[in-house]
């Protein structure tokens, strides 16, 4: 009797293990400090526009979602090594990624790079940034922008370059504390920081336009197409728009919506 039940238990666990292996897991690589796209919410759960979009796509495809917070500096290395299947976290599509062979989804969000500063810093236009201490998060498209397209601007900063920081939270802290004068930052993140620290203002100037997309390993074209298909369904059924509203994103920057006349 004992033996029989043991055998049964063994068989059961084998079946269980097999079914677990069969159910596909989709590992989503995120920057866990990037509100409102991906962050830890007040309950200690990962939330955000990108996280919820991904959840919905996974449900549609019957995948188990595993959220993998990554070190943003090394996101492509950990993608290559298989720690996660994609980078989906307010990630700007860069030409250098395409050149390196990564598979990139269509853009799902139009972003602009702006300057966030504090009232009383005497900065009204980007020209006022000359000689000022300007910060940017390392590994963001803002950093890339300052090194390339806006390198003439960044040469006017104190020290001839922007100070790179580990995350936007530290940028916000230093801005609020007065140890930096301005931060070059993605518009939605700037708006989130405004809610957190008082007295921050966004300059009415667009430093650069860019688009967010999802990055997959080279060769994962099929996976990318499957995710894109799922996203298009979410656009059609209105989830895309309602999630954007939930996270306070401007509908005008949702580039997948059919353009209104």
């Amino acid at each position: 009797m004992m033996k029989k039940s043991l055998a049964l238990l063994l068989a059961l666990s084998l079946v269980l293990a097999a079914s677990l292996a069969l159910a596909d897991t989709f590992k989503m690589g995120i920057d866990a400090e990037y509100p409102p796209f991906s962050y830890l919410d007040d309950n200690g759960e990962y939330a955000g526009f990108d996280v919820e979009m991904c959840k919905a796509v996974c449900e549609m495809n019957g995948w188990d979602l595993e959220i993998v917070p990554v070190n943003w500096d090394f996101k492509l290395n950990s993608l290559d090594s298989g720690e996660h299947d994609c980078v989906w976290s307010g990630m700007t599509i860069l030409d250098s990624m395409k050149e390196a062979g990564y598979v990139l989804s269509f853009p799902y969000y139009d972003n602009t790079q702006v300057v966030l500063t504090k009232e009383g810093n005497g900065i009204a236009t980007t020209a006022d940034l000359a000689g000022k201490r300007v910060a940017v998060q390392l590994g963001t498209s803002g950093q890339e922008l300052l090194e390339n397209d806006q390198s003439a601007l960044s040469a006017t900063f104190e020290g001839g370059a922007a100070v790179t920081m580990e995350n936007f939270n530290i940028c916000g802290t230093e801005l609020a504390a007065g140890s930096v004068d301005a931060v070059v930052i993605d518009l939605p993140v700037a708006q989130t920081l405004q809610k957190k620290f008082s007295g921050l203002v966004i300059l009415d100037e667009n430093l650069g336009s860019e688009q967010y997309g999802i990055c997959f390993r080279s060769g994962d074209d099929a996976l990318c197409a499957q995710v894109e298909e799922g996203i298009m369904k979410l656009v059609e059924d209105g989830t895309y728009l309602s999630l954007a509203e939930k996270y306070g994103l401007d509908p005008n920057v949702l580039c997948l919506l059919p353009k209104a006349e």
């Binding site: 290395n77 250098s96 950093q143 790179t164 580990e166 530290i170 230093e174």
Partner: peptide
């Protein structure tokens, strides 16, 4: 020291690694 935005050698290395997508 990068944690507190002190731009030492490794920080600059990370900046380049990012903008060049290079190891």
């Amino acid at each position: 020291a990068f944690t507190v935005a002190y731009q030492e050698m490794f920080t600059i290395g990370k900046q380049i690694a990012n903008s060049q997508t290079s190891f």
